[in-house]
Every structure is written in C-alpha cells, then in structure tokens.
Write a protein that binds this DNA or RNA. Structure first.
Ligand code: FES
Ligand code: FES
Lengths: 144, 144
DNA sequence: TCAAAATAGGATAAAATTATCCGAATTAAA
DNA sequence: TTTAATTCGGATAATTTTATCCTATTTTGA
C-alpha cells in the first residue's frame, strides 16, 4: 500500500512525537533502532520530512529530530504520506490511467473511489498525537 | 496501490472477457494495443494468469487468450490481484510489520483495518462480467 | 579553540520492478 | 507437409526503489 520509505517515515514521526512530549530530541541512530529501519535510508526520509516541515532537526552535538509539542496534534498522517509518496494514492487512478476522471472512468473507478476516499479521510483525520499516545500506553507497537 | 503488472492484468482480463462473450480469442498483440501496455511485459503477466487458471491460452495460429463464457461472472478482481500481487494488500500490515496481528498491532492497525477490509470486500465482490459490460456499454474505458 | 557528536548531502550499490529480445514449441490453415 | 501465426520461456536490460558509504557542516561542551 505504502512505500517502505513512507512506512519508515510514519513510524519515525510517531517516535519523534512521543519523545518531543518529553522534550527529548532523538537521534537518527535511536530512531532507526526503535523502528527497526536501515539508518542511512531513514536519514534520507527524515531529511525529506524536515524539508516538508513535518519535523524539525538540529545539527551538532545534542542535536536530533523533534516536533514542536503544540504541533503534534496538527500533524496528520496525510501530511507524512503526501511528503514522501505524493498524492497518487489519494487521487490517482486505480488502474493507472493518466488521470482519474469522472467523465472518462476506468472499469473500477466507481468501486475503487469509495475505498480511496475512505483511505484519504482516514489519513486526513488521524494525527500524530493519538498514535503516539497508543504507543505510550502500550496499545500499539512500532516494531516486531 | 496496485503494481503496474496488476493493473495490466486487470485490464487485460476485462478485455479478454469482453471478447470471450463474442467467442473471439484475442492475441497478445491486440490486448497490449487495447490496454496500452508493453507487449512483452504483458505476455509475462498473461502467462502468470494462465498458470493461476484465471484465463486460458491457446498456442499457434488462431490462438490467443480467452475465458470460458460461463466462468466470466465467477472471476473476481481478488483472483487477479492475488495471482499477481499476492495477498499483502489484504492481509499485510499497513506499516510493514512482519504480520498484522490483532494482539500486537502497529500504530495504524485499527484505523487501517477497515480500509483494508473495504478494499478486500470490493475486490472479492467485483467480477469480470460487470466490468466487461461497462466497457461494452461505453460507461468505462481501458485506456487514455 | 578544539574535539566530539550530530545532521546534511552527494555518490554509489543492491534489489525489486518494469520492460525488451529472441528462439523454441505449438497450432491450424493452405 | 509446409508455412504463418501464435504463446512460452529464458536471458538480459532499463528503471525505480531501497540501502549504504563517506565527507562536509554544524553545534555544544570541555
Ligand atoms: S479513472 Fe480509474 S479510479 Fe478513477
Ligand atoms: S498490525 Fe499494522 S495493520 Fe495490523
């Protein structure tokens, strides 16, 4: 469904959010360890999220990644997915036609559309805060 | 969402079904032309579908691909997707955990599950007959 | 000021997906 | 029986995605 890059991006963001509540900046190394992802590849993805202002980074000793506490609840999954995978999963044609066009629909258009919309609204209505809290409470897990 | 291979496979199957109603066997060449796909790559995918008994093939002059008329309405999108992309899209974890496990859920599990189930039921409840009929009536299109 | 700890970013490599090529095997009609 | 039209299947290539490596740059504390 999502690319590996996007999966890592989502998991990393949740872990960063979790720590940002505790005013702790997390390093690339600890992120990769926590979400079980390749370090250097994860670095690229984090850079991407920084460029898209989903997370913040600080270089140097005692540096790392963070998200402003007040913003955590405003970061939606859709922001992360969009930054990394783009919007094809929302708006692209399920059968790969150049554009999804109501007036020139592919065979699965009407059936596919509702699934895609549900996915879209799910992503747009899920924020990092709730995801981080579920990790904190032990209701969900980032690896294994 | 789906791989290119899967997109081609679905479109090809619909076109084959459409022609099978007219007792016409279609060649690789005409399929690739109709669905706007690379010929040799499409051949591989069709071979795969033949092996999975989604479609039938006949070699030699006047050969080509077909689906038994009586079976067209029994071929579900899920069969095609499963033959080509496997079942990860149904049953895999949205964040790439090794397995999707209710007792060890990833952060998006509960939100993701319903989307995945809707997709699954859509694919399991859509058959080639209805898709072919919509193409026939001009209600939907296989290319451009 | 210097050293250590980080992220940034470019270059490259590995793996997976998508795509192409070509000869072998099969089939039916002439 | 020959020939033309096909699918089949193996080898290979191109592209995209995933992953790694190395150096530069930034930041803080000693
Ligand atoms: S045209 Fe294919 S999903 Fe809309
Ligand atoms: S555990 Fe991730 S979707 Fe179920």
């Amino acid at each position: 469904m999502f690319s590996k890059a996007c999966e890592y991006g989502i998991k990393a963001s949740i872990f960063i959010a979790l720590n940002s509540y505790k005013n702790v900046r997390v390093s690339l190394k600890s992120i990769a360890k926590e979400i079980n992802s390749p370090e250097a590849f994860t670095a690229k993805i984090l850079q991407d999220l920084v460029r898209h202002h989903v997370i913040n980074s600080m270089k140097g000793a005692y540096g790392g990644f963070e998200i402003e506490k007040e913003l955590i609840s405003t970061v939606k999954l859709s922001h992360i997915v969009n930054a990394i995978d783009g919007d094809a999963i929302y708006s692209g044609c399920g059968l790969g036609l150049h554009t999804c066009d109501e007036n020139h629909p592919c065979p699965v258009h009407h059936k596919f559309k509702s699934v895609r919309e549900e996915l879209k609204s799910m992503l747009e209505n899920t924020n990092l805060e709730e995801l981080a809290l579920n990790i904190k409470s032990g209701a969900s897990f980032l690896k294994v």
